[in-house]
Each structure stands twice: as C-alpha cells, then as structure tokens.
Design a protein around this nucleic acid. Sequence first.
DNA 1: CTGAAGCCTGCGGATTTCGCAGAAGTGGGG
DNA 2: CCCCACTTCTGCGAAATCCGCAGGCTTCAG
Lengths: 171, 171
Amino acid sequence: MHSDVVASRSAEHRDSREPRSGGPQLDSVSLAIIEQLQEDGRRPYAAIGKAVGLSEAAVRQRVQKLLDQGVMQIVAVTDPLTVGFRRQAMVGVHVEGDVESVADALTAMSECEYVVMTAGSFDLMVEIVCEDDDHLLEVINRRIRALPGVRSTESFVYLKLKKQTYMWGTR
Amino acid sequence: MHSDVVASRSAEHRDSREPRSGGPQLDSVSLAIIEQLQEDGRRPYAAIGKAVGLSEAAVRQRVQKLLDQGVMQIVAVTDPLTVGFRRQAMVGVHVEGDVESVADALTAMSECEYVVMTAGSFDLMVEIVCEDDDHLLEVINRRIRALPGVRSTESFVYLKLKKQTYMWGTR
DNA sequence: CTGAAGCCTGCGGATTTCGCAGAAGTGGGG
DNA sequence: CCCCACTTCTGCGAAATCCGCAGGCTTCAG
C-alpha cells in the first residue's frame, strides 16, 4: 500500500499538474500547514499538528485533501544542472491569434517545464530544460517556432541559477 | 551490483542553500532516488530502496546527503494564486558592471523567488511573487531599479500559470 | 426534528524512521 | 603487501510515525 497516490488519481480526472487560477479558498490553518511543508516536505504530521494546533489525524486528512485537490504537491526539486540537464533557457514567445492554444501545445512538450501567459512584450514565457545544445536548438527552432500561431521567439540561455525557493508565506 | 560509485569524492561542504552550477556528479542510483522523490516527496525509504535496489538505510543516508549538499530539497509547492499571492511577474534586468553582485542583491530579497543569470538581451531574469499591485510596483520600481548596477528593467506580469512541473529525469 | 455532510479526535496495529555497529570496497603511504 | 583512513552499504532493534476506523460535534437543508 505504498502508492496511495494512485487512489486519488482515479477519482477525478482533473490533471493535478495543471494549476488552476481561482482555486478553493484556504483557511489560515491549511495555510499554516502548507508553510510547514514548504520548510520541510517530510515533516511528520504530529509535529505539524503541534505547530498549527490540530491533531495528527486532522493534519493528515487536510494534507491528503490538499494533495487530492491539486492545491499543493510534495516533491523533490533540484538544480537541473546537477542532474544532467546542461542547457536551460527562458523563451519569450510572440503569438498571433489564440494564445491559449499555443500555451496548451507548449504545455504538452516535456521539455517545457514552466509555461505562463504574460502581459508585456511577450505573450508567453516558457522555461526549457534540455540535455545539451543540440537538444535545445531542436526544441526552440524546430518545435516551438513550428507551432501555428507562433510569430517569433527570443531566447535567454541560463548561465547560472542563483536562487530557487518555495517559501511563499513564510516571510 | 552497485559497483560504479565513481562519484562524490572530496566532500567539500559548500553553502547548501545556494545552488551551484557544477555540483558533484551523481551516479545513476542517486538519480533514480531523486526520480522517485520527484514523483512523491514522502515516499518511504523502503519503497524507494526496492525500486532502486538498495537497502532502506542506504537510501536514507543518500537522501540525507543529497539534502545536506543542497543537491535537492523536498518541499511543498503550490500555485501562488491559491495561497494569496495575487500578482506575479517575470522581470528582465539590464545590468552595467558586475552582474553577480546585482544577482546577489536580488537573491536577498524575499519577493524574488527565482533569480537566474542569462545570455541574451537580459543579463538577469527574476521571478517576483507579490500580494497585490502596490506590492509589485514597490518591489520593481523602488527596490530593484534602485540597486546600483541596474540600468533598466522590463516586466512581464503573469496572467495565467499554465504549467509547473518538477519531473526532470522522468521522461 | 432528522438525516446527511464535513471536520475533528482518539486509539490500536502496521509501517517507517532512526541510530548504531559491523562488513565490504577503495586508495594511499610505509 | 599490509595497514590505516575513509566511505558506503547492510542488518537490526527501539522509538516514532503513519494509517484506517469508529465516534463526537457542528452546520445546514428538508
């Protein structure tokens, strides 16, 4: 019974990967629980309960619900460079026509780790994670620029990742 | 079996919070462990061990080391909009002089969630997470632009976050 | 009033985590 | 070649944690 994650997947077909914008309102207790797990994703439920004033079982139920609803995920995050992805880039995209459909196409590409619709001189910004220069070139020039609706792109190749945190709410 | 542990010689202890670029080489077993934890950050060590062919204690030691070295962190990640941060933006920064010192100053700001040095028309790209428009304005116009070395900035306010994954290596 | 739904608590058993001691492999000096 | 220092893996109890379940409390609608 290790993978209790499987259970939640079948219940609702909503893809938990896809962040929605107007999610359910969270009360201050759930917020406090999230803060605890942002500090340490493996913190025991009992310790969290002590911090937020709830029983261990209550914390467990709330965490499970937050995971099922896709409000948060508990995962390992790494510096991609240390795990073998040597080229990363932020790509700004100019779109003509339907921005959302282009965004969906980019979302479907596994090399696109981060896709966001923006206001400003770009319509979309996309973070790309690749293994090497050839891979990066292929993704940007052959795949992204080939998408219908993409007028032009501008690339910003990563030289050095300086900061990467997940501490919203703990300040 | 687990023969090729060519990795991790000199145990140079660096600042664990600051992601470095050329971190220690990871062998395939550590990579497999990370993949497991990218799927579920709370997966038990025994289950991971079964998946990668190691004992529970060995997995535990390796995970602890990866955390200590700052190669990965296990955290809860959320869609900021659902936890009360209503304004986000990517900011491109043009720098004159020492880019690294500007990057350090940005890294020190709690509203900057992501800081990366880039090649391209921007020297730095920064992701900002704020509570509202006033807060965003204050950060960009009063704090970032006031930094010595910052020549100009260009902002891309987030309209909709379409994708946010942490599944490098699992594709 | 009554039933359903949502959330919390307490509790016991199964599971996991934790610390430690020992074995096994590696890489120099002497 | 032997020995030592260092690293990493394994095995194993003891302690802590996780998990499912039954029950209590409150809210809300009929």
